[in-house]
C-alpha cells in the first residue's frame, strides 16, 4: 500500500488540456473575433469615455451624462424598446401557431412550408423593405380616394408591421424545430392524466417549446431594437421614427462624433443585455439542467479524488 502511494506521488500530474487535432480550424474565426469584435469593443468603450476638447484628448463621463440627463434620449430609448417589444410580441402571437401547425403536418408539406417561410430571406432586406413600402403606398393611394387623411407610412403600425414582416421567420423557425422534437405521446399522456387539449397546451406543449420561444424572442428583439432601415423607410421621415439605431448612425456617419455615438451604443447594449437577462430567467428548464449537470460533475470529481 505504502509503495503504491509513493509511486503515485512521484508521477507528475499534467494539467494540459487535451486539444482536438482539428481545433486549429477555428483559428481564422478566432482572429476575426479578436480583431473585429473584441478589440473594436474596447475601442467603443475607449471612445465613449473620452472626448476631444480644444484638440486635446481627455477622459470623461460627459458623453454618458449628456444622454442620461437628456429626457429626449430616454424618450427615444423607450420608443425603440416599445417598437421592438411590440414587434416581438406580434411575431410570437402570429408565429407560434404557424410553427405549431407546420410541425404537425406531413413531412413533405412541412419542407414546402419551411422553404416558403425562409424564402423572403433570400432577397436583400433593404429591397424587401422598399418593396413593402411601395405596396403600402399603393394601398394608401386606394384608400385616400375614400378618406384623404388616410396614411400607413409614418405610423406606429407601419414600423411594427415592417419589423414583423422582416423578422417573423426568425421566430417561427426555432419554435418549429423545438416543436418537431415534441413527442406526440406526451400530449396523449397529458390527456390521460386529466388535461383537456387546452390545458395540455399550457402545461406540456408551451413549456417544452420554451427554449425555441426564448431564442426566437432573442433573435427578433435584438435586431428590432437597433434597426435602422425599417424605421427610416416605414417612418416616412417623421422625427418620431428616428430611433436609437438611426441616432447612432447619425452620430457616426453624418456628424462623425464617434465619442457620443459610442456612448449611446454602449447604453443600448446594457439595456438590451438587461432585457435578455430577464427573458432568460423565464427559461426554467435550461437552468435546471445546467444545475444538475454541475452537480453530477461534482459527484464525478468526488469519485475520481476518492480513487486517488
Amino acid at each position: 500500500m505504502a509503495f503504491h502511494n509513493s509511486s503515485l506521488s512521484k508521477k507528475k500530474i499534467s494539467f494540459r488540456v487535451k486539444l482536438n487535432p482539428f481545433s486549429f480550424l477555428t483559428i481564422p474565426f478566432l482572429i476575426l473575433l479578436i480583431f473585429l469584435v473584441i478589440l473594436p469593443f474596447f475601442f467603443v468603450i475607449f471612445y465613449s469615455l473620452s472626448n476631444i476638447e480644444d484638440s486635446t484628448l481627455i477622459m470623461t463621463f460627459d458623453n454618458f451624462v449628456k444622454f442620461l440627463t437628456d429626457p429626449s434620449f430616454w424618450d427615444k430609448l423607450w420608443l425603440s424598446i416599445y417598437f421592438a417589444f411590440m414587434a416581438t410580441l406580434m411575431c410570437l402571437i402570429f408565429g407560434y401557431p404557424v410553427a405549431y401547425f407546420i410541425a404537425r403536418t406531413r413531412p413533405k408539406i412541412r419542407t414546402i412550408f419551411v422553404i416558403l417561410i425562409t424564402l423572403p430571406m433570400w432577397v436583400n432586406m433593404l429591397l424587401r423593405v422598399i418593396g413593402l413600402k411601395s405596396i403600402m403606398e399603393l394601398v394608401t393611394s386606394w384608400f385616400q380616394n375614400i378618406n384623404p387623411n388616410f396614411h400607413i407610412i409614418g405610423t406606429d403600425f407601419a414600423v411594427i408591421f415592417g419589423e414583423v414582416f422582416v423578422s417573423i421567420p426568425f421566430m417561427i423557425i426555432p419554435i418549429y424545430t423545438q416543436l418537431l422534437k415534441l413527442d406526440p405521446t406526451l400530449l396523449e399522456a397529458s390527456k390521460d392524466l386529466g388535461n383537456n387539449s387546452f390545458k395540455t397546451f399550457f402545461k406540456v406543449t408551451l413549456p417544452i417549446s420554451m427554449p425555441g420561444v426564448i431564442s426566437g424572442i432573442t433573435m427578433v428583439f435584438l435586431p428590432a431594437a437597433t434597426s435602422i432601415v425599417i424605421p427610416k423607410y416605414m417612418g416616412g421621415g417623421l422625427p418620431r421614427y428616428t430611433l436609437i439605431g438611426n441616432l447612432i448612425e447619425n452620430y457616426f456617419v453624418k456628424q462623425s462624433n464617434y465619442n457620443q455615438g459610442a456612448a449611446m451604443a454602449l447604453i443600448m447594449t446594457v439595456v438590451i443585455l438587461a432585457i435578455i437577462f430577464v427573458v432568460k430567467l423565464f427559461d426554467r428548464s435550461e437552468v435546471k439542467i445546467q444545475k444538475t449537470k454541475k452537480q453530477s460533475a461534482k459527484v464525478q470529481k468526488g469519485v475520481v479524488t476518492n480513487e486517488k
Partner: peptide, 28 residues
C-alpha cells in the same frame, strides 16, 4: 376522451415530461 376516463396509462416509451423532474411528473 381519455381525460374523462377512469383509466391511466403507462406508455411504451414512458412519455415522461422532460420539463419536469421526478416529483413533478408524478404530481402531474
Amino acid at each position: 376522451p381519455p381525460n374523462k376516463r377512469a383509466t391511466n396509462t403507462v406508455f411504451q416509451n414512458y412519455a415522461l415530461f422532460p420539463h419536469l423532474n421526478v416529483e413533478g411528473n408524478i404530481a402531474f
